Simulated scan of single mutants.
Amino acid sequence: MVSEKVQINNPSGLHLRPAGILCKEAMKYKSLITFEYAGGTANAKSVLSVLGACVKCGDEITIFCEGADETEALRNLVMVINKGLGE
């Protein structure tokens, strides 16, 4: 299992469009991908789970990847988040 903390910098947080982009990226990998935030844990491959996390701009999340392609998955998810998730 690998993990990394990352800050969400999108002005509106993880609303529908960036949540969809995050999920689409996460679904490319076989690994189990979740993230922890102030209120609990969310499945990064589920748009409803990501939206339910109510992550706002400036919030820090910790991404966890576990599986055969965990290192590649973590690296690319962090990169996509740092690039603003399409915004």
Rank of each mutant, 00 (worst) to 15 (best):
residue 12 S to N: 15
residue 49 S to R: 05
residue 25 E to M: 14
residue 20 G to N: 12
residue 49 S to H: 04
residue 12 S to R: 15
residue 72 E to A: 14
residue 68 A to T: 14
residue 40 G to L: 09
residue 70 E to D: 10
residue 62 T to Q: 15
residue 49 S to T: 01
residue 5 K to A: 08
residue 68 A to Q: 13
residue 44 A to Y: 00
residue 58 G to L: 05
residue 74 L to W: 07
residue 62 T to W: 06
residue 5 K to M: 07
residue 23 C to G: 00
residue 34 T to I: 04
residue 10 N to E: 05
residue 55 V to C: 00
residue 11 P to N: 05
residue 1 M to L: 13
residue 33 I to R: 03
residue 75 R to K: 15
residue 9 N to C: 04
residue 84 G to Y: 07
residue 30 K to G: 15
residue 11 P to C: 03
residue 2 V to N: 05
residue 23 C to Q: 09
residue 74 L to G: 08
residue 10 N to A: 08
residue 47 V to C: 02
residue 47 V to L: 13
residue 53 A to M: 09
residue 1 M to N: 08
residue 14 L to N: 03
residue 38 A to R: 15
residue 12 S to E: 14
residue 30 K to S: 13
residue 50 V to P: 08
residue 55 V to Y: 02
residue 87 E to R: 13
residue 48 L to H: 03
residue 15 H to K: 05
residue 3 S to N: 11
residue 84 G to K: 10
residue 73 A to D: 06
residue 64 F to I: 13
residue 63 I to W: 08
residue 36 E to L: 08
residue 42 A to C: 12
residue 32 L to T: 10
residue 38 A to Y: 13
residue 34 T to P: 01
residue 13 G to S: 01
residue 17 R to V: 04
residue 71 T to D: 14
residue 85 L to G: 08
residue 86 G to S: 10
residue 75 R to W: 01
residue 50 V to G: 09
residue 43 N to T: 03
residue 72 E to V: 15
residue 45 K to C: 07
residue 68 A to L: 14
residue 81 I to M: 02
residue 75 R to D: 11
residue 20 G to T: 11
residue 46 S to F: 04
residue 14 L to A: 02
residue 44 A to P: 03
residue 66 E to T: 12
residue 79 M to A: 14
residue 19 A to G: 13
residue 18 P to E: 00
residue 26 A to H: 04
residue 49 S to M: 05
residue 47 V to Q: 01
residue 35 F to W: 06
residue 28 K to I: 03
residue 36 E to T: 13
residue 37 Y to V: 07
residue 48 L to R: 02
residue 12 S to P: 02
residue 76 N to A: 02
residue 6 V to F: 01
residue 60 E to A: 07
residue 40 G to K: 11
residue 48 L to Y: 03
residue 42 A to F: 09
residue 5 K to E: 10
residue 10 N to L: 09
residue 14 L to F: 04
residue 84 G to W: 10
residue 27 M to D: 06
residue 57 C to L: 07
residue 48 L to M: 13
residue 85 L to E: 07
residue 29 Y to H: 14
residue 66 E to D: 15
residue 25 E to W: 09
residue 3 S to E: 10
residue 37 Y to P: 07
residue 1 M to C: 11
residue 62 T to L: 12
residue 7 Q to I: 13
residue 84 G to D: 07
residue 16 L to D: 00
residue 78 V to G: 10
residue 77 L to C: 06
residue 70 E to A: 05
residue 23 C to Y: 00
residue 65 C to S: 05
residue 4 E to Y: 06
residue 35 F to R: 07
residue 24 K to S: 12
residue 23 C to N: 03
residue 74 L to P: 08
residue 1 M to K: 08
residue 40 G to A: 10
residue 74 L to Y: 11
residue 63 I to E: 06
